[in-house]
Simulated scan of single mutants.
Amino acid sequence: MSALRLPEGFTDVFVSRLVQLDGLRLHAVIGGDGPPLLLVGGWPQTWYAWREVMPALAREHTVVAVDSRGAGLSDKPDDGYDAGTLAADLVALMAALGHDRFDVVGHDIGMWIGYALAADHPERVGRLAVVDAIIPGLTPSPPVFGPAAVNHRLWHFGFNRLPGLNEELVRGREHLFFGYQFATKAATPGAIPAYAVDVYVEAIVADPRGLRASFAYYRALDETVAQNEQRRKTRLTLPVLAVGGARNSGALVAETMRLAADDVTGVVIDDCGHYVAEEQPAQFTEILQDFLGGTPVTGVPHGCGTSGASR
């Protein structure tokens, strides 16, 4: 971590660990003291996406920011990128770290994994926070010829599922392709600093399996969709926080979770796109700490947890 740009004092609290599981090695950055909290990032990011919120969370939690299978420094096997397998990986990771029950925060693909964790392993998850995404197999699929704005936001779902052509088109142009994702999904083109984009892109480029693995989550969508169609038959009863950036998914995050859960608090953060933990870390941390502590969430009137609100 010494080569990364991090908040002051970060390495005094957090350590980088490679944890060997049964046939799989996962990387996580761990620190803090208190109830365990698992942070699960999205595509095409690594644990580094949480760097701005981790120090404050670590004051009251043992924070585990993980690189899921296929991301960052974690192993990149040929298969196992469906949400159920990814969730089982993280149950095994937390058990290996001594945590049988924990809270979960998931962003983007991490939201898919977080939902699978809560649905498949309800005895393991106390509270679930999900951030700015939709869930395949739960959220209704948009039409092929939908509005241009919807296509602009979701076109990568189809592209990333291609069986090989996408790798040929992107290889050697990774900064162009992935840089475009950050520039267009954030509230402003420069909201995610160039140094952070470089960290994410270089993590993919540095491993010859990285590009394939980055698309593998999407190539496994048929499995994930089928799993979620089964999961939604049993509603979640644990508390759920659904956070959306007003300039990206917005209230759709809470609408999605209400299709599957009974106790949903919805918050929309203004002046924010897809990358909530990096674009608005102070607001997001305050909201998340309220939720994890079991107090009324900042910006949501008391008693309105299941109806949602905007911040």
Results as ranks from 00 to 15, higher is better:
residue 140 P to A: 05
residue 259 L to M: 02
residue 173 R to V: 04
residue 253 V to H: 03
residue 166 N to Q: 09
residue 177 F to L: 09
residue 185 K to I: 02
residue 147 P to F: 15
residue 135 I to K: 00
residue 157 F to M: 04
residue 97 L to M: 09
residue 14 F to T: 12
residue 63 V to F: 08
residue 201 V to T: 04
residue 255 E to T: 04
residue 175 H to L: 14
residue 100 D to L: 10
residue 100 D to C: 13
residue 299 G to Y: 13
residue 36 P to T: 08
residue 139 T to E: 03
residue 247 R to H: 12
residue 208 P to V: 06
residue 44 P to I: 01
residue 279 E to H: 06
residue 88 A to P: 03
residue 272 C to P: 07
residue 173 R to Q: 15
residue 244 G to D: 09
residue 8 E to N: 04
residue 83 A to K: 05
residue 219 R to Q: 07
residue 178 F to R: 11
residue 146 G to S: 09
residue 35 P to E: 07
residue 57 L to K: 14
residue 205 V to L: 03
residue 5 R to V: 13
residue 9 G to K: 12
residue 260 A to H: 05
residue 263 D to I: 15
residue 268 V to W: 09
residue 72 G to L: 02
residue 17 R to I: 10
residue 111 M to S: 01
residue 237 T to K: 10
residue 89 D to V: 00
residue 227 Q to V: 00
residue 106 G to M: 01
residue 30 I to Q: 04
residue 47 W to Y: 06
residue 40 V to G: 00
residue 311 R to G: 14
residue 298 T to N: 08
residue 62 T to S: 13
residue 108 D to C: 08
residue 101 R to I: 08
residue 7 P to S: 04
residue 131 V to I: 14
residue 96 A to Q: 15
residue 95 A to G: 15
residue 30 I to E: 14
residue 208 P to T: 05
residue 266 G to L: 07
residue 107 H to M: 02
residue 273 G to S: 14
residue 119 A to W: 04
residue 217 Y to M: 00
residue 274 H to D: 15
residue 108 D to E: 05
residue 202 E to Q: 15
residue 183 A to P: 15
residue 30 I to N: 05
residue 130 V to E: 02
residue 45 Q to A: 04
residue 186 A to G: 12
residue 202 E to P: 07
residue 12 D to F: 09
residue 216 A to Q: 00
residue 122 P to V: 14
residue 311 R to V: 14
residue 285 T to Q: 12
residue 248 N to Y: 02
residue 16 S to K: 13
residue 22 D to A: 10
residue 229 E to W: 11
residue 296 P to Y: 14
residue 3 A to H: 06
residue 23 G to C: 07
residue 159 F to I: 06
residue 147 P to R: 05
residue 274 H to S: 06
residue 210 G to N: 07
residue 205 V to S: 09
residue 220 A to S: 01
residue 82 D to V: 00
residue 99 H to M: 11
residue 117 L to N: 02
residue 256 T to P: 02
residue 192 I to W: 05
residue 47 W to D: 06
residue 246 A to P: 04
residue 141 S to A: 12
residue 19 V to D: 14
residue 87 A to S: 01
residue 234 T to K: 03
residue 104 V to A: 07
residue 238 L to D: 07
residue 174 E to G: 12
residue 50 W to A: 02
residue 63 V to E: 03
residue 304 C to R: 11
residue 157 F to C: 01
residue 121 H to V: 07
residue 253 V to P: 10
residue 200 Y to I: 11
residue 268 V to K: 08
residue 118 A to H: 00
residue 258 R to Q: 04
residue 99 H to G: 12
residue 145 F to G: 03
residue 143 P to Q: 09
residue 256 T to K: 11
residue 27 H to Y: 10
residue 16 S to Y: 12
residue 3 A to W: 12
residue 188 T to V: 15
residue 220 A to K: 00
residue 200 Y to R: 03
residue 89 D to K: 00
residue 255 E to N: 11
residue 16 S to Q: 11
residue 195 Y to Q: 09
residue 170 V to M: 12
residue 115 Y to K: 01
residue 9 G to C: 14
residue 129 A to H: 05
residue 187 A to F: 04
residue 307 S to Q: 14
residue 204 I to A: 03
residue 74 S to M: 07
residue 274 H to L: 13
residue 244 G to A: 06
residue 169 L to Y: 08
residue 5 R to A: 03
residue 77 P to L: 04
residue 66 V to I: 11
residue 135 I to Q: 01
residue 286 E to R: 13
residue 119 A to F: 02
residue 28 A to T: 15
residue 168 E to H: 14
residue 181 Q to L: 14
residue 132 D to N: 06
residue 14 F to G: 08
residue 228 N to C: 01
residue 34 G to T: 05
residue 185 K to Y: 10
residue 295 T to Y: 14
